[in-house]
Simulated scan of single mutants.
Amino acid sequence: MLDIRPIGRSMLNKVPEVTLVFWLIKIMSTTVGETGADYLAVHVGLGTSVTGLLMITLLAAVLAIQLRMDRYVPWVYWLTVVLVSIVGTQITDALTDKLEISLYVSTAAFAIALAATFAIWFSVERTLSIHSIVTQRRELFYWAAILFTFALGTAAGDLATEALGLGFNVGVVAFTALIAAIAAAYALGANAVLTFWLAYILTRPLGASFGDLLSQAREYGGLGFGTIYTSLAFLTVIVALVAWLSFEADAGGKPEASPGA
């Protein structure tokens, strides 16, 4: 039986520090979410429904492990993020491809769902800071928000690059520029929590656009590396970075989270 710890139990912060490595792994995990889901659904031939069910099952199992931890454990946390990325992608793809729901509608719906999650989270906890994930209730809010950021980012990214016709190249440039603007705003004193979540949302379409740019065939505007090689390359880098983070944590202990988001 799953042993879910008490909702209000205090624990060490369950989220890593927001560093360059954090953003690198986050962007690459979104790329893997895009290319990995495509590989399983199309090239392996599982289809969207089977792939989605398989990934949801894996996510539930890994998330249960994550919730049982009383501190940040790099490999568990980032495996959860990768699986959330894939599931978020699958949710949007299912709505678009299976149910034929407009990307305009799904983007708006996920934006509302994310806003509602933040509103409820803040009304209960009075903070949206990722450096205060010290109870299981806050962690549940956190992962719900993460799922909706991935789903929203997928829908918004597809809306921009496909429905609006920006293409992968322009999409990468556009989303990079938006993230750079948010980083500049943060440097100039903008609210740390707000800028973090805006950047978190935008790294999803950036990673997806970059993944599509690398993996899609040249006739579709990509570089033609394919989903297999793109997914393996990014997974290799993610594993290496997470292994390094794990070694660093074991060697010196996880440092205190920096103030900000």
Rank of each mutant, 00 (worst) to 15 (best):
A183S: 14
L164P: 05
V170S: 10
A180W: 11
E162G: 00
T161V: 15
V173G: 01
W143T: 09
L152Y: 02
L152H: 01
G153S: 02
F150V: 12
V173I: 15
L166H: 06
G153A: 03
D158T: 08
A181W: 05
A177D: 00
A180G: 12
D158F: 03
A155T: 08
I182H: 08
I146Q: 11
L159M: 11
A174F: 15
W143L: 09
F150G: 10
F150M: 13
L147C: 04
A144W: 05
V172L: 06
L159D: 04
A156S: 15
I146E: 11
A183Q: 14
G165M: 12
G171W: 07
I179W: 10
G153M: 02
V172P: 01
L152R: 02
T161C: 09
G157R: 00
A181G: 11
I182Q: 10
A163E: 14
W143P: 09
L159C: 07
G171V: 08
A156Y: 08
V170Q: 09
L164H: 07
I179H: 05
A160V: 12
I146S: 10
N169W: 04
N169Y: 03
F175I: 06
L147M: 11
A177C: 00
A180P: 09
L164Q: 11
V173A: 14
A177H: 01
I179K: 06
A177F: 03
A160F: 06
I182P: 09
A174Y: 09
V173L: 14
I182G: 06
G165A: 13
A180V: 14
L147F: 12
A151M: 04
G171H: 10
W143I: 05
T176C: 13
L152D: 04
N169L: 14
A155K: 01
L147T: 03
